[in-house]
Simulated scan of single mutants.
Amino acid sequence: MNWPLVELGSIASFINGFAFKPAHWEENGKPIIRIQNLTDPSKPFNYSSMDIPEKYHVVSGDLLVSWSATLDVFEWHREDALLNQHIFKVEPDYKKVNKDYLRYALRDAISAMLKFTRGSTMKHVNRGDFLGTKIPLPPLETQKKIAAVLEKADQLRKNCRQVEQELNSLAQSVFIDMFGEPITNPKEWDIKTLDDVCTDIYRYPTFYGFDYVDEGIPVVKIGNITKDGYVGDDLSKYDFMPESISKEYPRTILKLGDIVMAVRGDGSTGKRIGLVESENVVNGNISPNLIMYRANRHKVDPIFLYYFLTSNGGQKKIEKYISKTAKKTITGKDIKKIEIYCPPIELQKRFRAVYQETRNLLKGSTKIKDYDELFSSLMLKAFKGDLNL
């Protein structure tokens, strides 16, 4: 079905947020919505009681589009707040467009834009180009029907993701039950340092003098660590280096069971941790913003090490060594000093068996990836007019 293509700027207003400065931050007032508050609801807010124009105020139900660093669409469902720069507040023209339809159309448009930002470390869209982006605009009643179909598919994805999160939390709970809290070490296990229990802990300061290629060796970056704590296996989301360059950095080449962790960045340092579980990324190289842990399997099981690092206690031990500067960093030298308790390797292997059971349950259920593919297929059909409504 051929529907007219219209520019985003003709069916909605896109209001860029206020340019708050650190001097505007206060202990009280309304929360200031920054991009990190959209991508991670656990992130703390800054606050301000400044008297700023109403157009910068956000209420529950408002559509927001982050257009710098992270490109995505969000619907605000928290307390009234103030909007920071680099985020658009979207005010639809309800005579022309249904809000829920617009939300999915924006998501589809941004997905198309992301295909052209591959290799960029700081994604950013030009306001004029964004407002000039065209989307199909069916009649309002058809828009509502399309949005309802996509909402149902989206809810399936959310339900599946919730199941995955609960199974992942189960393994973390079993870890604490078996070994105790890492800070207090109530079971009085032997204490070692990470340097003692790893055959290598390594990062290379930077790569020099090469361009990414269309085919080659995958370069694992912070963004390739999935939300559930794995190094992603979807190679379409990777940049690639020539094999000849990869060989120049042999200690950055990954093996199964390796663990990678962000060591530089605003909010990801020490927190974004991924386990190498897929053959797709074996022999890939870590980027300079990551460090690699390789367990000495005679002393520590890689799965035990991973759950130690991602536990609340492990995170506190890591945080102790993260710099307090705006661009947070942690050095390999300091990481090697971190203390870890070491239960008998046989007990660690028993925990691995529990972990494997939870992974098998996840693999046996419908994967979030399957629902993502279903949703993408529905989106494609919806905006081509091929859905049977």
Rank of each mutant, 00 (worst) to 15 (best):
S173H: 10
N159P: 01
T133L: 14
M113S: 03
R127A: 04
L137D: 01
E188V: 09
D177I: 00
L156K: 12
L156W: 08
T121P: 01
L167T: 11
Q155D: 12
K187A: 08
L114T: 00
T121V: 11
N185H: 10
D190Q: 14
S120Y: 06
V174N: 02
P138K: 09
A171Q: 08
K145V: 07
Q172C: 00
L156T: 10
K145D: 06
E141V: 10
M122D: 02
H124P: 06
M178A: 04
V149Y: 08
I135D: 15
D129C: 00
P136W: 04
F175V: 03
Q172E: 12
I146C: 00
S120R: 07
F116Q: 01
F130L: 11
D190F: 06
K152N: 08
M178S: 04
K192M: 14
V197K: 12
P138Q: 09
I135W: 09
D196S: 14
L137E: 05
A148H: 08
I146Q: 05
K187H: 14
R118F: 00
F130H: 08
K152W: 07
R127C: 03
I176G: 00
I191R: 15
I135A: 15
L131P: 01
K115V: 02
C160N: 12
L114N: 01
T142Y: 09
D190H: 08
K115H: 06
L114I: 05
L140S: 05
K134L: 08
I135G: 15
R118W: 02
T142N: 07
T117M: 02
L137T: 05
Q143V: 09
D129I: 02
L137H: 05
L170K: 11
F130I: 11
A147L: 05
L140H: 07
E166M: 12
G180V: 05
I183H: 10
V174M: 01
P139Q: 13
F130E: 09
